[in-house]
Design a protein around this nucleic acid. Structure first.
Lengths: 238, 238
DNA sequence: TAGATATCGATGTAAGTATATCGATAAAAG
DNA sequence: CTTTTATCGATATACTTACATCGATATCTA
């Protein structure tokens, strides 16, 4: 199956790509030219078969007995995710979470750069957080149109999420990274990615509970290799 | 399938539970006594069938033509997740992300309360963040043992993650909520839940890319109902 | 009381994901 | 040059999850 010229990657695969990228970029520092699926699997706690399956849709091919060319692999992954050229993003809501996101310097490595922040609270605007200017929310539209920004990061309290999302969409935003625990209603031509910390916490709670109740109980969907006890990040991606 | 007395819930189901809880608790404020799977489905963008399936393993039953008793449902979910009695947790790493987590007052609703924080940097210790004391990391072990804490939140830079995880485990921690982009190696009797923001960003990038390439392309695993365009949070939970 | 509507619960189907197996190929070792 | 080892790639299988259908039950309305 293809979209444009790209063969399709499943969402679980997509979610694993950043991990692969991290290991691969560390490997660049060494002298290694190639890397095997086995190596990556061990480094990340996956099965080698999963790794090969993940790379299968990419327009590259490994060599038997050798592995994959590290640079080719990095490029293929970044191409697929669209992380080669950095995209600008705006963030709304400079509370704790918003500030944390502004402070997280890692997004540029993942193709996204937060270039401006906004807040409704006048006390928080007209300052900079981590070198990023914070403007009043009223200026969002003007700036978004002017800078042709397409990605919005929503880090506001639940009750503001929907109206601000609508404001974003009117200003041309087409992708919303939503950290508010709210289901946003958006038109078809806008994509939303929800991030809900409570989900991970729920999983952790249950894992701990099950760990206590009985040593080891296989559970559906739980594919973590012993002894890591990780939870596959198979965030469903509707 | 059961664990102890509880019938098993799949990880995707578990991840949806916090969303159900939120809607249900909002509903408590109203006069409604019952709620239908259809209502919850609409509120959250799921299919009614998914909702009923999610509740099926719980020790409750709905009434045809009526729905589920709201209070029963809340209790059943909280029981299953172990969110009835609040569990204490320690957090390590008071950088941006750690501070954000300390500022996020929502965890108590989810059965977890961060009661103490730790940091290696002396400049950050012996202060309070959001009324939570920050102590030097050396004191972690003593306090964890004394307070019998079992949950550790790891919000440190990648290079510190493994050693601090080991320190946690030595101090009796059995569940680690890991925000560092690192695969932790832990013994069998410790569970880890990894939280990696890059995963969600990867999904968002690909969604946006696919949206641009062509209007609508069904993609495996993507079950978002039109027009929400959400990504199922099917974080695989190995 | 009777009919219409809403909803659950059970069963079955389909899609997606993870896992296993096996032959072919490449490099390294003897 | 031959053997061994490591690895990919293709195919097949099992498991999980999502989705659909249908009969039974409960409430509401006339």
């Amino acid at each position: 199956m293809t979209i444009g010229s790209k063969r399709i990657l499943s969402y679980p695969s997509i979610r694993r790509m950043p991990s692969y990228l991290r290991v691969l970029k560390d490997l660049v520092a060494t002298d290694q030219k190639d890397v095997s699926a086995t190596f990556l699997a061990k480094a990340l706690g996956f099965e080698p078969i999963v790794v090969r399956k993940d790379f299968d849709p990419l327009p590259i091919t490994g060599k038997s007995g050798v592995g994959y060319d590290i640079h080719e692999l990095i490029k293929a992954i970044e191409d697929h995710l669209g992380w080669n050229n950095i995209t600008d993003a705006f963030l709304v809501g400079t509370g704790n979470l918003g500030s944390a996101l502004l402070g997280y310097r890692g997004f540029e490595q993942y193709g996204v750069k937060i270039v401006l922040a906004f807040d409704v609270d006048p006390a928080k605007t007209h300052q900079t957080i981590n070198d990023i200017h914070v403007l009043p929310i009223d200026e969002f539209s003007t700036m978004a149109v002017r800078m042709k920004v397409q990605i919005g990061v929503l880090a506001v309290p639940a009750e503001y999420a929907q109206p601000i999302a609508e404001q974003m969409i009117k200003a041309g935003i087409r992708a919303i990274w939503n950290f508010a625990p709210v289901k946003l209603v958006v038109p078809e031509n806008v994509v939303v990615q929800n991030e809900d910390l409570a989900e991970g916490l729920a999983v952790l709670s249950v894992k701990l509970d099950r760990l206590k109740t009985q040593s080891v109980h296989p559970i559906p969907g739980d594919t973590s290799p012993v002894p890591e006890n990780e939870t596959p990040d198979t965030h469903p991606v509707p």
